[in-house]
Design a protein around this nucleic acid. Structure first.
Lengths: 192, 192
DNA sequence: GTCTATACACAGATAGAC
DNA sequence: GTCTATCTGTGTATAGAC
């Protein structure tokens, strides 16, 4: 199968890094081109509009995360380990340079995102919510977890904490804080 | 004491509403002026640069929240009620039109904010963290709360959940979800 | 597929009349 | 204090040469 244009992928990579740092609106074609050593117009050849670029970017990001979640589900892990790996996966996207989860970064600009991007961001969070709900339900049944609300409500709270923890850790310029907050959060779910 | 220009206040009010919806970069002088029925240049008379407007806005927002927290601290409330009132205060800034806490909305654009605004946003979160830490410590001492980590770590987690819950509720277009998530979060802290 | 050149809209910002 | 007019930079986007 013929690999899609390398440049196209590079554009997405650079755009993603920048938008993880600055959100959607603050990133321009010129910013992306500068890092790649190509011109403005070349990017338009691959992505005619910024909306298309953004939509493809969020779509790819969501697909990648979906793959990670499927892989985690397929591995023979305890529910506790699955959540630990989940947090570790998000920890890996945080960098000292201010990058956080793409969709969390985009959530601030949500009101100004193209409609297609809004839908992608929605799907991204829905995906996470479903996966977390399943894991929590399994862990509850198996006795690894104990929590008072429904698995779905607990999943939503966990997801909210995950997003907020990334934002807070960045504002504080203290990336380890993310892991610290999430670690505490996970321990609160475990049956003693 | 002479009241400061009414227009100045109106500008801040409109700018705040817009930035609660769209973040910092997506809001222009023209957007603000349109809602107020004044021209671009008139806004520059009150706020020479957008950085100054944004800084004053975040400063004012932080001061207001500080007042609310001081008032809550002064009231004779149980630690549980204090947290409930705290959540209720943030619930009040959420509107069906997509507005959320100003500093949470700005957190997505954090990397592109003027240095003074970054400092203000930092101070805002530090203020919340300190207040929550104090309340949690009091509640722990008095036996109202029970949690395994330090009051400070627990406060950070609660603050992260608060921020994430606002973002999630907005993406889901389901404002009541905020209250639902935070309510669950608070109950998890209470001693049975 | 990338380039130069350019179009067009809009951003933040300033000057000066009223 | 607000206006019109204007400046300058930058944004997204397009046309057409190479």
């Amino acid at each position: 199968m013929p690999s899609l244009s390398n440049t196209r992928t590079h554009i997405l990579d650079v755009a993603q890094g920048l938008m993880q740092q600055c959100g959607f609106n603050a990133v321009s074609y010129a910013d992306i081109g500068k890092q790649l050593g190509i011109r403005n117009a070349s990017i338009h050849h691959h992505f005619p509009s910024k909306a298309e670029l953004g939509t493809e970017l969020t779509r790819r990001y969501r697909e990648r995360v979906k793959e990670v979640l499927l892989t985690l589900s397929a591995a023979e892990l305890s529910p506790v380990s699955m959540l630990e790996q989940y947090v570790a996966a998000y920890h890996a996207v945080i960098h000292g340079d201010g990058r956080i989860c793409l969709c969390t970064a985009l959530a601030g600009d949500y009101g100004t995102l193209p409609a297609d991007m809004q839908r992608e961001v929605q799907s991204f969070f829905a995906l996470n919510e479903r996966w977390l709900t399943d894991v929590l339900r399994q862990g509850q049944t198996s006795g690894h977890f104990r929590f008072s609300e429904s698995p779905r409500d607990t999943a939503l709270e966990l997801l909210a904490t995950l997003e907020g923890a990334m934002l807070l850790a960045r504002v504080r310029q203290e990336p380890p804080l993310f892991f610290q907050m999430m670690d505490r959060s996970l321990r609160g779910l475990q049956a003693t």
